[in-house]
Write a protein that binds this DNA or RNA. Structure first.
Length: 296
DNA sequence: GACCAGGTGGCCT
DNA sequence: AGGCCACATGGT
């Protein structure tokens, strides 16, 4: 007997007001558990909620109730932000970001669970995205509650704290085992209160998150952006640095943007990933390399 | 079988 | 403050 609720047969349709691309949201490096169940149908999981989404022309079909859509998924998909407007706010003289925002049209910043985001981005250091996915999947299978056919919720801090070092290491955590343990420790003891962190300003949030071992500026920025919706916070990793060197002559690509730097960062990151996959044919409009003509 | 991966902590100056 | 370097493991 499955311990999870039987699959619901309910379905609802909604029409996104602006950007909403399932592939890009699942593959822009922000979440590691979304997967394509069937061509065009994507499964997202947050907490113990799951939803299956399929694009139907201008609309999207979701296998959940309207109530669950409103209480869970509206927030998860950040539906109250206008991403088309964010893309339009890219400076006209910033040709590189113009191009990347066009390529990334459809991306939204997913508002993920802070605990899960903390652990997955601790794992992300010195791993490529397929390896992170694999590691997270193992953690969920071993320590997470089943929430559907071949689906598990992300394990609770208590569950990971109970796990032995050996069991954690078997999930390919490598040298990050003590980091994850420290995060679980702080979550259980209350030293790290994820709900209370909502009230911190950006600087305070980064500072508190960085008290966890294995959480430096980059991982803390990812948690701020992907779990706390701090869209002005732009994580800088090797890929962003690479874009900076290649297209911005080493200058900070986000210096000109006070308020949506995190979203713009995501466009650059997604572009870099696509460019890696198809260096020649992927980008239909080639980017001009070297110093851009940025205005101060 | 190299080389690299959504970095970080702990050393050194 | 800033420059090195080890770190476990898996993907390409």
């Amino acid at each position: 007997m499955p311990t999870y609720e039987r699959k619901r047969l309910t379905a609802m349709i909604f029409e996104p007001a602006d950007d909403f691309d399932l592939y890009k949201m699942a593959n822009s490096g922000q979440c590691f558990t979304a997967r394509e169940e069937a061509p065009g149908t994507w499964r997202f999981i947050t907490g113990e909620h799951t939803v299956r989404l399929t694009r139907r022309g201008a609309a999207v079909e979701a296998d959940c109730t309207a109530a669950e859509w409103e209480t869970v998924w509206r927030r998860y998909f950040d539906l109250d932000r206008n991403y088309a407007a964010v893309r339009r706010a890219v400076r006209p003289d910033d040709a590189v970001l113009q191009r990347c925002a066009a390529a990334g049209e459809g991306i939204r910043i997913l508002r993920q669970d802070p605990w899960e985001t903390t652990v997955t981005f601790i794992l992300s250091q010195r791993k490529n995205i397929p390896a992170i996915r694999c590691s997270v999947e193992k953690l969920k299978r071993r320590f997470g509650r089943p929430v559907g056919e071949e689906m598990w919720a992300f394990p609770t801090p208590e569950a990971l704290l109970r796990a032995s070092d050996e069991a954690l290491a078997r999930c390919a955590l490598g040298y990050r085992v003590p980091y994850v343990r420290d995060a679980a420790d702080r979550a259980v003891s209350g030293a790290l209160d994820f709900a209370a962190l909502e009230r911190e300003d950006d600087a305070g949030l980064l500072e508190k998150l960085e008290t966890v071992r294995g959480v430096g500026r980059k991982v803390a920025s990812c948690i701020s952006l992907f779990a706390y919706g701090r869209v002005d916070c732009a994580p800088v990793d090797v890929w962003i640095r690479r874009m900076q060197e290649t297209y911005y002559g080493g200058a900070d690509p986000f210096a000109a943007y006070a308020c949506h730097a995190g979203i713009y960062q995501q466009y650059l990151f997604y572009f870099a990933q696509q460019e890696k996959q198809a260096p020649a044919g992927g980008a239909d409009v080639p980017l001009r390399r070297g110093k851009p003509k940025m205005t101060s």
